[in-house]
C-alpha cells in the first residue's frame, strides 16, 4: 500500500491533467505527450532532465532524514538560497580566482551556509520548543530578500547594465559540463553520493535508527535515552547541508552567477519529492525524476503550445494532493452521518 499510493497519485494526476488540458482547449493525448515524453526525446532533453532532478533528489534526501524523525524542515528553499549566496560570495571574492581550491571552498561555504541557516530553527526548536515548520518557512523569506538585496545592491555587477545580478563566476568556480553542448555537469555525482549516504544513514546506521525511533515513537526514544534534541539537530542539519550544497551546485553549474531567480522552487518541490519517494533513498530518486519531468514538461508546453507557466506548479500541487489523499484513504474510511432533525433515533435506542 505504501508503494501503491504514489503510483495511484501519479495516475490520478495524469487523469486530472488531461481534463485540465481539455478544458484549456487542447487535445489531452498530444498535450500529455508534449508534456511528459517530448522533453526526453533529445540528448539535450535528457541532460536537462537529470540536471533538474539532481538538486531535487539531493535536497529531498536531506529533508527526508529529518522527516523520518518528525522534524519538519520546509525551509529548504531558504537554505538553498543561502548556500548559493555563500558559494557565489567565495567564487566572486576569493583573492585567487584561478585556484583549484575554489570549487571545494565553495562547496564547503554552500554547505556551511545551508546548515547555518537551518541551525537557527534547530536551536529554537531544541532549546525553546518553537515550531520548526513556521521558523524554517519564515527564514526562507529572509533568505530570498537577502539575496534580492545583494544582487540589487552591493553585489550587483557594475558591468551588468543595471540588471539585478552579480558578475559571472570565474571559470575555476564552475562545474565544467560533460559536453559543451549540454548543461549536465559533474555535480550530479554529489547527488549520487548523497543518495547512497542517505540510504546508509537511514537503513543501516545506528544514528538513523535512533532518528526513526524518535519519529515513530517519541516515548520509546525517551525510554531508550535517545536525545530528542539530537534528532532535531541532525534532521535540520542534514536538510540544511543538502539544500546548501544544491544551491552551490546550481550557482556553480547552470547559472554561473547570482540573480533573484536562482531557484524555480527546488526547495519546496523537494518536499513533495521526499514524500513521493516515501522518505526512502531510492524512492526519492524516482520521485525526483518525476518532479524534474514536471518542470521540463511545464516549460515545454509553455513554449510549444503556449500554455501558462503556472502549469508546473499546478501539477506539483495536484500530485501532492492526490498523494496525501491516497495515504489518507489507505488508513481511514469516510462515513456520512446526517445531523438529526429530531431525536427519534435515540428514543428507539
Amino acid at each position: 500500500m505504501r508503494v501503491a499510493a504514489p503510483v495511484l497519485a501519479s495516475v490520478l494526476t495524469l487523469v486530472v491533467g488531461s481534463i485540465f488540458f481539455a478544458s484549456l482547449g487542447h487535445d489531452p493525448l498530444p498535450t500529455l505527450y508534449a508534456f511528459f515524453v517530448e522533453p526526453l526525446n533529445s540528448l539535450n532533453g535528457l541532460s536537462e532532465w537529470l540536471l533538474k532532478a539532481s538538486p531535487l533528489i539531493l535536497i529531498a534526501c536531506g529533508l527526508a532524514i529529518g522527516f523520518r524523525a518528525n522534524v519538519w524542515n520546509i525551509g529548504a528553499e531558504g537554505q538553498f538560497t543561502m548556500g548559493a549566496i555563500a558559494a557565489s560570495g567565495v567564487g566572486l571574492f576569493w583573492p585567487n580566482p584561478d585556484s583549484v581550491l575554489l570549487l571545494p571552498l565553495m562547496f564547503v561555504a554552500g554547505m556551511g551556509a545551508g546548515m547555518a541557516w537551518a541551525a537557527i530553527p534547530a536551536f529554537l526548536r531544541a532549546r525553546m520548543n518553537t515550531n520548526e515548520i513556521l521558523v524554517t518557512l519564515m527564514m526562507t523569506y529572509i533568505a530570498t530578500l537577502f539575496l534580492s538585496y545583494l544582487v540589487h545592491g552591493p553585489w550587483r555587477d557594475p558591468a551588468g547594465f543595471n540588471y539585478p545580478q552579480t558578475a559571472l563566476l570565474p571559470t575555476a568556480a564552475l562545474f565544467e559540463s560533460f559536453d559543451p553542448a549540454y548543461r549536465l555537469n559533474p555535480s550530479i555525482f554529489i547527488t549520487v553520493v548523497a543518495v547512497f549516504v542517505m540510504w546508509l544513514f537511514t537503513d543501516r546506521s545506528f544514528l538513523g535508527y535512533k532518528m526513526s525511533v524518535s519519529g515513530a515513537a517519541p516515548l520509546a526514544a525517551r525510554y531508550a535515552g535517545f536525545r530528542e534534541s539530537a534528532a532535531v539537530w541532525i534532521g535540520l542539519m542534514a536538510g540544511g547541508a543538502a539544500a546548501g550544497i544544491a544551491g552551490m551546485a546550481e550557482a556553480a553549474g547552470p547559472l554561473g552567477q547570482l540573480s533573484p531567480q536562482i531557484s524555480p522552487g527546488y526547495g519546496f518541490a523537494a518536499i513533495i519529492v521526499a514524500f513521493i519517494g516515501r522518505l526512502n533513498a531510492f524512492g526519492i530518486v524516482l520521485g525526483g525524476l518525476l518532479m524534474s519531468l514536471l518542470f521540463l514538461g511545464g516549460e515545454g508546453v509553455q513554449m510549444t503550445l503556449g500554455l501558462p507557466s503556472a502549469l508546473t506548479r499546478i501539477f506539483q500541487g495536484i500530485l501532492l494532493f492526490f498523494l496525501l489523499a491516497a495515504d489518507f484513504f489507505i488508513f481511514y474510511r469516510i462515513r456520512l452521518i446526517r445531523p438529526a432533525r429530531d431525536t427519534h433515533a435515540l428514543e428507539t435506542a
Binding site: 526513526s212 515513537a217 516515548l219
Partner: peptide, 18 residues
C-alpha cells in the same frame, strides 16, 4: 507499545532499542 517498543518496528529493531 510506543514506550517499551516501537509499534511499527520489527522485533529485531526493537531489540536494538536498548
Amino acid at each position: 507499545l510506543g514506550r517499551g517498543a516501537v509499534p511499527s518496528h520489527t522485533l529485531w529493531e526493537n531489540a536494538v532499542l536498548t
